[in-house]
Design a protein around this nucleic acid. Structure first.
Lengths: 350, 350
DNA sequence: CCGGTTGTGTGGATCGTTCCACATGTGGAA
DNA sequence: TTCCACATGTGGAACGATCCACACAACCGG
């Protein structure tokens, strides 16, 4: 007889009020400002809430408060069939932390950067989100300012360069990562340590480059002829870039790559030349992605604390929306070197 | 002087009505049932909409219609540090298609399966979503029925076995994939073709197994002693499983793996035994993930049409919500074999 | 005993849209 | 002419929460 009613209409705040024998507003206070209501009344209201299994309707609340407690995030398109390996750990952390803070993550997809702003515009004008999380910022990224003009705060994964508009971001200290890689290689006895990276279109790569450069110099080693840069949108492209490593008369004994993809491309080119990774050439990647783990030998790589990044980003978004943090708050997190089999002591005959 | 007003309050339907000199309801009709209003009036209203840059407020609409046009999707946790490589192409397609249909995707995160239902419950009771997309169903998956009891439809990526509750799904024909792999290998001259898979905890693996088995039998080859199964939650585990391939007295010349991870584990074990992939042992993976592309030699693998799966899932969700499709609609899509370097003609000396 | 402050509780108005019921004008069938 | 069907347009009510203004005590110091 105590059968639970299936898919019956959910209880409303008014029903709870009636049940508890109080006014509607009192229930609202009990929910949002418990200290505003007398302890005895609070108990009554809470009992009624539990009995009815009441949960406030998010939509109604949003309409009245003009805030959806929803954060928009554009998931990146997958260029040239090479998906971003970093994505899912990060997004998972984002969604998990958001939930714990009472926020939701709304996904958007856009094919290109022009469409991206269109999508954002749509979401803003239909009042679907309160804020955005951005990722992969470029130099002088227009998005934060564009959003700010429309009254929508944003937090970026990756620091925003260019000072037109101060904006909030959380970034991983890439320089510290490559520095750790160089230190590790020097400790193994390497003296010819190259840097392999994409062109400077994104600040991320530059940051990693600077870490490598200053560390190499600090160890009194030369950076001349040790930098190879080129586009790496696909494995084929990356291999072409990696091939240039072996062109000079004194090839490096170790390589620090700005991405795991380039590191793997290094594997391919080294193997093609009869060099064994680890023994003849040490390689360090960046991102600690799945291919790094799967490579033979397993790739030493720099791990970004993506879970923490996601948490911090949500913390900033919520703080900024609540007015408790300035809209240009910045956070830098430290990566960690994961040593695997691709880095070994330098062999004497080099 | 034509300065655009920054972050001014967005126009409402009432403002559009005033501007066009018509009633509010007329504007609403113009938006949702254009054929209900006279062409001349429609033009006036549309002009007013354009001039003001009006977009209907999603929240208000949701409150009134009791539908959010939002679909929930739980992104899977990443077990043991090995993320699902399949995720991001799929999610991107999901979000893109949803947007084109006027729907949004809301992400949820849950650590374990118990928490998953809790999260769903919260979203349902706060009226945040209209439907859910499920993935990685298990045998007799309780989720569709649980959701249906609460009046919420769902569509699963992966077929739902068990007949307690008929439910909608979109799946890739895994058996056709492994069958294609076997056909390909037989054509290359292989006669000892093994299957490497996880235990039958998920229907997916079973499906792939059946394809391999029937294809092998159809070619008049033996399946005896050619099946190796075991847990593959990490690369280490997978290698242990793969190692069993080489135990017997007549090791296979070719392997069909139920996942790329297992295929890669095969690479490792083969290499450890001095066998060359391609020359001494042909390997086919499943999922066509990034590690497959990066492996040396590049792994022949079975590609799932994830973009299409995402599109179809959204189509089903929208159709079911509109009452135009039955809540147990089923769709099967075909995978395709991507031939790379890991499969070569069988060598005579085997 | 008064004016003021604080603590607590309340119902009406409101957010922006769609549903509902109804008003009007037109035209064709009876 | 009468009647009904149909096309078109309208304002009030409703969705379910919060904001606002206010009511009513209790308590304070003067």
């Amino acid at each position: 007889m105590e059968e639970i009613e299936r898919s019956a209409k959910p209880p409303t705040l008014a029903m709870v009020a009636a049940r508890a024998g109080v006014g509607r507003q009192t229930v609202s206070y009990a929910l949002n400002m418990p200290q505003r209501v007398a302890p005895q009344t609070l108990a009554k209201v809470r009992a009624a809430i539990d009995e009815l299994g009441y949960r406030p309707n998010r939509v109604a609340r949003s309409l009245r408060t003009q805030a959806t407690r929803t954060i928009g995030y554009r998931i990146q398109p997958t260029p040239h069939g090479v998906p971003s390996p970093v994505l899912d750990r990060f997004v998972h952390a984002l969604a998990g932390t958001a939930r714990r803070q009472g926020y939701n993550i709304l996904l958007c997809a856009a094919e290109d950067d022009g469409e991206e702003l269109e999508v954002y515009d749509e979401l803003i004008r239909t009042a679907a989100v309160d804020a955005f999380v951005l990722s992969d910022p470029v130099y002088d990224d227009p998005r934060p300012a564009w959003l700010a003009e429309r009254g929508v705060p944003s937090v970026s994964f990756g620091r925003i360069w260019g000072r037109e508009h101060a904006s909030a971001w959380v970034d991983v200290d890439g320089a510290a990562g490559t520095r750790a890689a160089v230190d590790h290689l020097v400790e193994l006895g390497h003296r010819q340590i190259a840097f392999l990276g994409r062109p400077e279109d994104r600040a991320t790569v530059d940051d990693r480059f600077r870490g490598w450069k200053s560390a190499v110099q600090d160890h009194g080693l030369s950076v001349r002829g040790r930098v190879v840069r080129g586009p790496a949108e696909s494995l084929g492209q990356a291999r072409e870039v990696a091939a240039r490593l072996f062109g000079g008369k004194r090839p490096p004994t170790a390589v620090v790559a700005s991405h795991d993809l380039l590191a793997i491309a290094c594997y391919h080119e080294a193997t093609r030349r009869g060099l064994r990774i680890g023994d003849d050439l040490s390689v360090v990647g960046f991102d600690d992605s799945l291919p790094a783990l799967m490579a033979q030998p397993a790739l030493t790589s720099i791990n970004q604390p993506l879970e923490l990044v996601g948490q911090e980003i949500v913390r900033l978004v919520v703080g900024i929306l609540a007015g408790e943090l300035p809209p240009d708050h910045e956070v830098v997190l430290q990566p960690s070197l994961v040593v695997r089999e691709s880095t070994r002591p330098a062999t004497p005959h080099h």
